[in-house]
Simulated scan of single mutants.
Amino acid sequence: MIKLSVVGIFADLDEDALGDVERHINRKTYAAGTQIIEPEADSSDVYLILSGRVRIVNYSLSGREITLEEIGAGGCVGQLSAIDGEPRSACVFAVSNTDVGILSPSNFEKVVKSHPSVAWNVITELARIVRTSTRRIVDVSTLGANERVIAEILRRAQKVCDSDGAAILAPVPVHSEVAGRVSTSRETVARVMGSLARKGLVTKEDNGLHVPDVRRLEEFLSESIH
């Protein structure tokens, strides 16, 4: 059985405290492609990702799918509705076979109030969500579609940049997934990626998408904006 210690909000709990949390949790496995949370649903359970990966999406008025985030083992989803009691604001799918621990809203409240470190970690996670949302709003408001694609690749590269200033994005970013994250079309992503490849700013290799000079990609984005 996968231990709850893999979940980030429980990172500071000792074995006794984890045992206490475990008593409040129901475990479930979702097959890849299964919808875990429906938008506007009244349920307010919190889902702790023990293994696998989930994708959080929303839909524009025209029906276009917008990827808000992908979360792997250690993350959690659904905490907003558990906190404020409002309907779900997004849809969550299992990207791969995914094991979750499920906390009802009342049990989530008990755990948060009983363990101050969990409360602080939840606050930290909510702050991260706000920052991510703010960045996306700024990007959509100030950048064109091409620049948003480049900015997304740059952000991913900066997270895994090595000491030589290069990065490998593994696996290669899926065009439809990138398009969903930056609110554009898959065709636009393909066109931009092709342009970056021709300029030598990215190359597709067996182990992923290679960004040979992250700083150069950043400078290219800056030049494109101005």
Rank of each mutant, 00 (worst) to 15 (best):
H24S: 15
R156L: 13
E187V: 05
K204E: 14
K199D: 03
I66A: 14
R53T: 04
R186M: 09
G144F: 07
R198K: 14
V178C: 00
V211S: 11
G8W: 04
S106E: 14
V182G: 03
V149F: 06
G208F: 01
L50T: 11
E38A: 12
S60D: 15
F220I: 03
V7S: 04
R55D: 14
T132W: 06
V7L: 13
S117Q: 09
T184P: 00
E205L: 07
A151N: 07
V160D: 02
E40V: 13
V77W: 01
D213Q: 09
I49L: 01
H175S: 06
C91Y: 07
N107V: 01
A82Y: 03
T34S: 12
I37K: 01
I9G: 00
R186F: 05
R198Q: 14
D20P: 05
S185R: 09
L143M: 14
V211Q: 06
R216Y: 05
A73L: 10
I66E: 10
A190F: 06
A170C: 02
V46C: 01
L209Y: 10
D14I: 05
L196A: 04
L209K: 08
V77C: 04
P87E: 11
D20G: 03
K110T: 13
S176E: 10
S133F: 14
I37E: 00
C76Y: 04
G194Q: 05
V149P: 02
R55H: 05
E152S: 07
R131L: 12
S5R: 15
R135K: 10
G33D: 05
S106T: 13
L4V: 06
P39F: 05
M193H: 09
V77S: 03
P171R: 12
V46Q: 00
N97T: 15
N97S: 04
G33Y: 02
N107W: 10
G144P: 11
I83D: 08
L217E: 02
A179E: 01
D14L: 15
S224C: 10
L68K: 12
V149E: 00
G78Q: 01
Q35S: 12
I56L: 04
T134I: 12
E15C: 01
E205V: 07
V140Q: 11
E69M: 08
L80W: 00
G165Y: 06
R64H: 12
T29D: 11
W120P: 01
R156D: 08
M1I: 11
E38S: 15
F220G: 12
S81F: 02
L4W: 14
R128E: 08
F10Y: 14
R27L: 11
E205R: 10
R181V: 00
D16Q: 06
V77H: 01
R181Q: 03
P116N: 02
R135V: 09
R156V: 04
E15N: 07
G52K: 05
S114M: 13
D162L: 04
G200R: 11
I36R: 06
S117M: 11
R156N: 14
E70Y: 03
G194N: 08
R181C: 04
I168V: 15
N107C: 12
I49T: 00
E40I: 08
R135H: 15
G63Q: 07
G200H: 06
A11F: 13
A73K: 09
K159C: 09
M1S: 11
L80C: 02
G74E: 06
G74T: 00
D14N: 09
A11V: 02
R148P: 05
R131W: 12
E223W: 13
R215Y: 13
D206M: 08
A170H: 14
E218D: 13
L18S: 02
A167L: 02
R23I: 09
